[in-house]
Amino acid sequence: MTLWSRLRPYVMVAPSIAIFSIFFIYPIFYMIYLSFFNWDFINPVKEFVGLDNFTELFRNNEFLQVLSNTLNYTLLTVSLSIVISLFLAIWLNREGTWYGIVQGALFSPHIISLVSVSLVWMWLMDPQFGLLNWLLQLVGLPKLEWLSSPDSSLLSLVLVAVWKGVGYNALIFIAGLQSIPKDMYEASALDEANRLRTFYKITLPMLSPTLFFLIIINLISSFQVFETIAIMTKGGPVNSTNTLVFYIYEYGFRYFKIGYASAAGVVLLVVVGLLTLVYFKLLSRKVHYQ
């Protein structure tokens, strides 16, 4: 074997390995490294503080609330978005011009930039002049505070996220539904299965790989929510919408407490990692791959 033929595979994968290392692996390890230091981005000297950043993090009530905000936001967004999009997909999975138009309309939020989406929704949710409150009044319901009250602010953000995500999820669900062989439904019709049983015994299990995939990508992306918060609420009011990534951003790039922000980043990494691991361990056996 010549030297080249032995080296060739490594040379071929080198570019992607390099990119992956520089932009993914190295930052992760650098973040972990930084979490043991006090540093303000400018000072050439980094002060080693051991685990102080972490103890400070978990003693800080603000951070604990951020954690719980993030979990609440994620759970609500993922469950609502998955359930709604599944039902939409079942409804839209048929022939006809109108179904196609509705599908397209539902998908369009996915391709609009989150910044524009946030701005539009801020306007819609304005307690004084917003369209939503105007509509509520029109049907005789009381006005809502939307983003300006700590009671409803997180829910309002969930609403935006669900609205933006449902179209994409529904599209993936429709693709999944269409890959279920038609004769499976014919067989179940001959087996006298009613609609509910057909859904639970045929559709859902056959859709499980799609479901599994959508839940995990929705979980991860919800955990990392940032744009809507940065634009719409800045974490407020009273810290009610502050989530992990926004918290990290504020401490890192506004207060320049890089070490502290890195420690929070490590927590995010561990939480998302654990969540993914547990999810795969628990559910992957229930997923049916053909």
Partner: peptide, 10 residues
């Protein structure tokens, strides 16, 4: 059925 149409998850 021609391709049996068995329920693959059962």
């Amino acid at each position: 059925f021609q391709n049996y149409a068995l329920y693959p998850m059962m």
